[in-house]
Amino acid sequence: MKNLIEKFIVYQFGIFLAIMISGLFNLAYGQTTLKVASKSLTEQFAYLPGMEVNVEGQKAEIVIETWDENRVEILIDFISKHPSEMVARKDLDAIRYSFKTIGNKVYFRNFIKKDDGSEPQAQLKAIYTIRLPNACPVYVKNQFGSTHATALTKAFTLNSEFSEIVLDNLKGDIDIRSKYGDIVGNGIHGQVQMNARRADITLTDISGDFNIYTAFGIVKLFTDHRLLNSLNIDGEQSDVYIFDPLPSAYGYELTAHYGSITTPRDLKFNYLENNQTIKKAVFLPTKEMASISINITFGDIVIRNP
């Protein structure tokens, strides 16, 4: 009997031990530790009227903010991640950086290139935090990263690929080109050009004149007739949604090739063409208001009261 009890205790202890060990393994599984090697750099200079800041980033997270000071400050972190500290340190050198001033244009550039031409093993990234006066025009080119721009008032130009784009409270001449990177904007006011390929566009609180080209994307605009002046959208294989509290305040010219047009029921659209291939609908408001023109091939147009 005593023997049996001893055996039982040993058996129970064995199960307990097994559970503990498997628990430890479970804890260990699911996470990998990466060594993060980084370098930080700060550049700053006085802002002179007419100056333009250009940033060209590769694998860069770019944040542009404005301030009241009359100078430009750029903080840059260069980051390299790999399980091996040696590789992380070595590949950090593959991030190349240059800072040039040509006339009144200031250029910051980073790109990735190893001395021996091989591909870096570590995951590399550059993080730019740029602070400048709001009247300073900014040009950004970015790839495989993200761009956040806030409160610029004169001009912002962005050429971006595979990058997230967030625009907040921008005024002036705004020109955004994006391939494989959604554009999200709030408070965009001015002369706006957007060209998005395989990228969605979502804009709220917009005013001014908008020209948008879209391919393989979804465009969602939340408009306000008191602010919007004109809106032209051309595109292919894209759906366009316009949400406005007073849709009857606009003049519309909508064309959908191989697609559909959906409008609020109380708006009496005049269909100039309405067959399987093409649908063309126009609406003239009683008062001369802003105009919306949309021309889409292989896509739907939806005008809706939110």
Partner: peptide, 18 residues
């Protein structure tokens, strides 16, 4: 190369294997 003169900081980061 302005980066060559900078000090390298080393940290650790846990990443979800999934």
């Amino acid at each position: 190369d302005p980066l060559a003169k900078l000090d390298v900081q080393i940290q650790e980061e846990k990443v979800d294997e999934q």
